[in-house]
Design a protein around this nucleic acid. Structure first.
Lengths: 206, 206
DNA sequence: CTCAGGTGGATAGTGCAAGTATCCAAAAGC
DNA sequence: GCTTTTGGATACTTGCACTATCCACCTGAG
């Protein structure tokens, strides 16, 4: 197919696809003549991936390019670079707070240790968590401490279930699965939280 | 205090605070003379609120203004307008996907019904959930169905715990609590998920 | 064969959001 | 008295994600 059909299939305007090609988010098609190229299903999928990352995940074009590049890197061995991909999406999704305070970092470390979690010091979610804790304390919300455990419980259970689905999976598709799980899963969870909150609130007021 | 100290206390540059004043995100101080005004702790808090909404919650300035306006509206009675505030933050945080397909809407309705949740049709999370489901199907990820229940379980448990903390709370502070719970709680959960995922993954690979 | 219309690629322009910068006359504070 | 800071208005900047325009070159219906 040519670019017009790629556009029709994905609902993304032609100029935008050209822009993605320029920016390296989507690989160039196979040239059939000096100014013609052919695209295939892989390109359709790639464009959809880009839209999922940017529209749902809120990634910038630059961040999406980096994640996709890592994701489709040829030499990504079993665990090492899937971890890299995971870190990259996390980093791109987390709010970029400034240096967290020592006490929040300490609280983060405590939580991780008490849970017995095994988390590398470079995991971007560490800084993110500490940063958010700082926002809470600055705003004077003392009751997070209680909920923190509930959140951690939920995160732990979910993570186990999520990692389970990675199980019998083709190594080539693992990286993509991790990215989609993180991004779309996060959006899913967020939406469900909104629904459950209303439901719980209305139940409370009997 | 004057604007300089407000700036120092919050870490937000003076011109930015002036911008927030112009945009109606922060109320004007009490004028003490034609070109002097006095600010107090409430202003400090308000500025921090704005930063939490925009930096952590990812809200636009316009969305933050609307949420804050609803939040501090004088005549917000017990439940009615706290619900409004909740909807407003939700709507501002959810990715703005285009019209979801019928089948995704149906799946969303099914899920809500099976769970016995009581959710109004206007809850913005409904459309958001359906929209995300569409992304999943377009990307050809079949195994969400299984996880969907895990996500819903987690959301439900969390929501109950969250609504519980609303319990013995001053009505005047409830709206703010709901907003902070939604925004900062979401960020917290997201960060914890990132940590738990790494931990679960490393445990899996024993 | 013809010719309207799509194509790849380059370059330039748009629109919006979120600040920054500048200016001014009038306090504030030492 | 004299340097800073202030409130307020207006203008400017930056960055991002597209759009628009051009042009020579293909493609495919008639």
């Amino acid at each position: 197919m040519r670019i017009g059909e790629l556009s029709r299939r994905t609902g993304v305007p032609v100029p935008t696809i050209k822009y993605y090609l320029r920016e390296g988010l989507v690989p160039h098609g196979e040239r059939t003549s000096p100014n013609q190229a052919r695209y295939d299903e892989a390109h359709v999928h790639r464009v959809r991936l880009v839209r999922a990352l940017t529209e749902v995940g809120g990634l910038s074009i630059a961040a999406a390019r980096d994640v996709l590049a890592l994701m489709h890197e040829p030499g990504r061995g079993r665990l090492g670079s899937i971890g890299k991909v995971h870190f990259a999406v996390q980093a791109a999704r987390q709010p970029h707070t400034d240096e967290p305070s020592e006490s929040s970092v300490a609280r983060t470390n405590d939580l991780i240790e008490q849970r017995g979690w095994h988390v590398r010091p470079t995991n971007p979610a560490r800084a993110a968590l500490a940063g958010v804790l700082d926002y809470f304390t600055r705003l004077g919300q003392p009751d997070v401490l209680g909920l923190l455990d509930d959140y951690a419980d939920a995160a732990e259970k979910l993570a186990v279930a999520e990692i389970d689905t990675l199980g019998g999976r083709d190594v080539d598709h693992m990286a993509e699965h991790v990215v989609m799980m993180t991004v779309l899963g996060g959006a899913l969870l967020n939406a469900l939280r909104g629904l459950a909150q209303e439901s719980a609130a209305s139940a409370k007021m009997t």
